[in-house]
């Protein structure tokens, strides 16, 4: 069999081509797809359950696990539940502000890492890596230690500080990864045509790396709005959405 034919077979059927046994074919056609579907179903189960229980008829006094019948009452009541609306607003505001700050700071770091070789580059990369790899509980506990030692009152401001702290590295890594295919010659062309560095950045570089920045910002927003562990340490009496939910059950 020619190499070309083998390649074509591999495109259609995956590896192995015509040499595979019946057992392998069965594995590929039935066992793996069914198994994968089950795992994905398992991943999605909690979402179904949450939606389902949103319609559960229970007494409002306590959380009930038993199914008591169908009701739409909770959807009518969602916005009068004490604290929920405020917590949700807090979450949105914190996520918006911390995303903007983290996206700017993270993008600048990514630009430096992508375009320059400089002393201390390894240290910068090391700090980013350590920040992402460090467990959340340690980040939260250490930041609370700082606030305790300096007597900083906990509230919205400290939550924003924390969220920017854990998002800078994620933005930097995401933006830098998306810069991989960036062609420096385009910038040089702009400068050859008389654009100054600022004009080059705003009118050439920025539009080209914008999808990466957007991806980084979306990730930062998602991480901010979902964060519970770090926020719980530095929030004081302020409730964000995850903290409200945690306290409600």
């Amino acid at each position: 069999m020619s190499i070309v034919a083998t390649r074509d077979a591999s495109l259609v059927e995956g590896w192995g081509g015509p040499k595979q046994t019946r057992k392998q074919r069965r594995l590929r056609r039935f066992v793996l797809p069914i198994y994968s579907a089950l795992v994905i179903l398992y991943l999605l189960t909690p979402i179904f359950i949450i939606v389902l229980y949103g319609f559960n008829q229970t007494s409002p006094k306590k959380v009930a696990f038993r199914w008591g019948g169908f009701t739409l009452r909770w959807y009518r009541k969602a916005f009068v539940l004490s604290g929920l609306t405020a917590a949700f607003k807090n979450s949105l505001m914190i996520a918006a502000i911390s995303t903007i700050i983290a996206t700017i700071l993270g993008t600048l770091v990514a630009l430096a890492l992508f375009r320059y070789r400089y002393r201390g580059k390894g240290a910068t990369e090391g700090i980013l890596f350590a920040n992402i790899a460090a467990p959340e509980i340690v980040l939260g506990a250490s930041l609370l230690s700082l606030f305790v030692l300096f007597g900083v009152p906990r509230g919205i401001r400290t939550i924003i500080i924390a969220h920017v702290m854990f998002n800078i590295a994620y933005v930097a890594v995401t933006v830098r990864a998306r810069m991989a295919g960036f062609d420096r010659a385009i910038e040089e062309a702009a400068q050859d045509l008389g654009a100054n560095p600022l004009q080059t950045f705003i009118r050439v570089t920025l539009p080209l790396i914008f999808p990466g920045i957007l991806a980084g910002a979306l990730l930062a927003f998602a991480l901010s709005i979902d964060d519970f562990i770090i926020t719980n340490f530095v929030s004081g009496a302020v409730e964000t959405f995850p903290i409200w939910v945690y306290g409600a059950v």
Partner: peptide, 25 residues
């Protein structure tokens, strides 16, 4: 100076609110 100017704001934030707290803890 460019790479240092670019990384400075982000790195200052991380030093102040990530590295320093670890020592202070």
């Amino acid at each position: 100076a460019a790479p240092y100017l670019l990384t400075m704001p982000g790195m200052l934030w991380l030093v102040a609110f990530f590295l320093a707290p670890l020592v202070l803890m």
